[in-house]
Amino acid sequence: MFLLAEMTDTVRIEPWLFNVPLNDAIAEELNKKLANKVVHNVGLCIALHDIIKLEDSHIFPGDGSSHTKVNFRYVVFRPFMDEILIGRIRSCSREGVHISLGFFDDILIPPEALQQPSKFDETEQVWVWEYETEEGTHDLFMDTSEEVRFRVVDETFVDTTPVGPEDVIQPGAETGNEQAKSKKSPYSLTGSISEPGLGLLTWWAS
């Protein structure tokens, strides 16, 4: 679920931080810049693990700050494909079951990846597994806040970098596109519970 990603960046340290040890100042700046942010094709950044290498610091004309190229390792959240995770149901919609891990909410289990057969209850706004037994069919509701075990089957990175002015030619038409893009999550996961042992923990409790 968590891994170490090696990265390189140039860190700018303001003059009033020159009294702070360089490693500490750089660590603080890296965490300000990256913590709880998604790096495209890397994952959700959690915290700095360590600094591997510091190159020479430079102060450029007209800028009193120091600039230091840093090679470091950062703890990131990026599950492996087919990894099994446990989260809680955040909500349900016709799109599927929305899962939260507490620190990460952009997880969807689509209808085709639920236990089958399943149906969406419009009144309760929940998905229901129509569990078949010898005695008949029992409705197992996927209620909000219930713990659920799921398999990670896909991940999606979206480049949410703002477009340049040259791309905004027709403001009336482009505004809608930009609003739609801004609502997209930069990193999301797709899960599945369509196999024995997966789904609500209460389903499989002995």
Rank of each mutant, 00 (worst) to 15 (best):
Glu134Tyr: 12
Glu134Asn: 14
Glu134Ser: 13
Glu134Phe: 10
Glu135Ser: 12
Gly136Leu: 05
Thr137Tyr: 03
Thr137Asp: 06
Thr137His: 05
His138Met: 14
Asp139Phe: 06
Asp139Gln: 09
Asp139Met: 09
Asp139Trp: 05
Phe141Lys: 13
Phe141Arg: 13
Met142His: 13
Met142Glu: 04
Asp143Lys: 15
Asp143Ser: 14
Asp143Thr: 14
Asp143Gly: 06
Thr144Met: 09
Thr144Trp: 03
Thr144Asn: 09
Ser145Asn: 11
Ser145Arg: 11
Glu146Tyr: 06
Glu146Asn: 07
Glu147Ala: 14
Glu147Trp: 12
Glu147Asp: 13
Val148Leu: 12
Val148Gln: 00
Val148Asp: 00
Arg149Leu: 07
Arg149Gly: 03
Phe150Cys: 01
Phe150Met: 00
Arg151Thr: 01
Arg151Leu: 05
Arg151Ala: 01
Val152Asp: 02
Val153Asp: 03
Val153Arg: 04
Val153Trp: 04
Val153Asn: 03
Asp154Pro: 01
Asp154Gln: 10
Asp154Phe: 07
Glu155Thr: 06
Glu155Asp: 13
Glu155Gly: 05
Thr156Trp: 03
Thr156Glu: 11
Thr156Ala: 13
Thr156Asp: 10
Phe157Gly: 02
Phe157His: 03
Phe157Arg: 04
Phe157Val: 03
Val158Gly: 06
Val158Tyr: 10
Val158Trp: 08
Val158Ala: 14
Val158Thr: 15
Asp159Gln: 05
Asp159Glu: 06
Asp159Thr: 05
Asp159Cys: 06
Asp159Trp: 02
Asp159Pro: 02
Thr161Gly: 02
Thr161Cys: 03
Pro162Ala: 03
Pro162Ser: 04
Pro162Arg: 01
Val163Phe: 00
Val163Lys: 00
Gly164Cys: 08
Gly164Pro: 06
Gly164His: 12
Glu166Ala: 06
Asp167Glu: 14
Val168Tyr: 00
Val168Asp: 00
Ile169Met: 08
Ile169Trp: 02
Ile169Phe: 02
Ile169His: 05
Gln170Lys: 13
Pro171Ser: 10
Gly172Pro: 03
Gly172Lys: 09
Ala173Pro: 02
Ala173Lys: 09
Ala173Gly: 05
Ala173Asn: 07
Thr175Asn: 08
Thr175Arg: 13
Thr175His: 12
Gly176Ile: 05
